[in-house]
């Protein structure tokens, strides 16, 4: 059994690395086509400036996301998720509900849940792509009514609508974890002491330090029983 597990794992890693490399090369085609085919003049200083800010912002976010999601996701599922994105709004919820539907505990990773979550993530990817394809085909007839200025506030407020719905469940389940990031976030944003692009990594850092202190002082006992992150 151990040998078959090892070869399954190794294959999953090798194929995952290959598909991610191809995926990144694929996304490079967008700027490449814009530069080579459309001959848009490249402004290296602007691109370097943009790259520096995105790397500064994304390095702590991606690193903390990577370090924290990798332990709770199976090998193949992780490669599917990284290639296709939409972690918290699509992939993790669908994988968790698939595991629950067949009576598995999503926080307790076994060989069986590895297989189930792989099937779930892959199915979710295919279904999602088909729905988005239909959506894009419908965008042409939909574009005009959706461009109506009366509807503009609906689209400019998508982010608050999403985080209102996502946040209320997560925070009501773990109110103690939310106190420090929320209060510090409010103060930092109101006073604008730090640039807003740095706000997220700073809040994650504050939040993790506070949680670590609470965990060490045994203030988060309820966690070992029921939490389902994401």
């Amino acid at each position: 059994m151990n040998n078959t597990k090892k070869s399954y794992d190794d294959k999953a890693h090798s194929f995952g690395r290959l598909s991610l490399t191809l995926g990144f090369l694929g996304t490079l085609l967008f700027p490449a086509v814009l530069i080579v085919y459309f001959k848009i003049p490249v402004s290296i200083p602007h691109i370097l400036k943009g790259a520096a800010s995105i790397v500064m912002l994304m390095l702590p976010i991606s690193l903390s996301e990577f370090l924290s999601i990798a332990p709770i996701i199976g090998t193949s599922a992780m490669y599917i998720m990284v290639l296709t994105g939409n972690f918290t709004n699509l992939k993790i919820p669908s994988s968790i509900s698939a595991m629950e539907s067949v009576g598995l505990d999503p926080t307790n990773y076994t060989d069986e849940s590895d297989v189930i979550s792989t099937i779930a993530m892959a199915t979710s990817t295919i279904v999602s792509e088909i729905i988005i394809l239909i959506g894009v085909l419908m965008m042409i007839p939909l574009a005009k009514p959706l461009a109506n200025p009366i509807l503009a506030p609906a689209f400019t407020n998508i982010v608050p609508a999403l985080f209102g719905a996502l946040g209320v469940g997560m925070i009501s389940k773990n109110p103690k974890l939310a106190v420090v990031p929320f209060i510090s976030g409010y103060i930092l944003m109101k006073t604008q002491i730090i640039p807003s692009v740095l706000l997220m990594p700073v809040l994650i850092l504050f939040g993790v330090i506070a949680s670590r202190i609470m965990y060490k002082r045994n203030l988060l006992k309820s966690f070992s029983a029921t939490d389902k992150a994401a």
């Binding site: 307790n108 608050p160 939310a178």
Partner: peptide, 30 residues
Amino acid sequence: NTWSKILVATIIISMYSRFMVDPLVKGGTS
């Protein structure tokens, strides 16, 4: 794996907080 669960939940909540304090500070429609 208690700490790893707490860590994941904290990171997700902190990310949410960043987007939730925005409307709190701005007020109005958002």
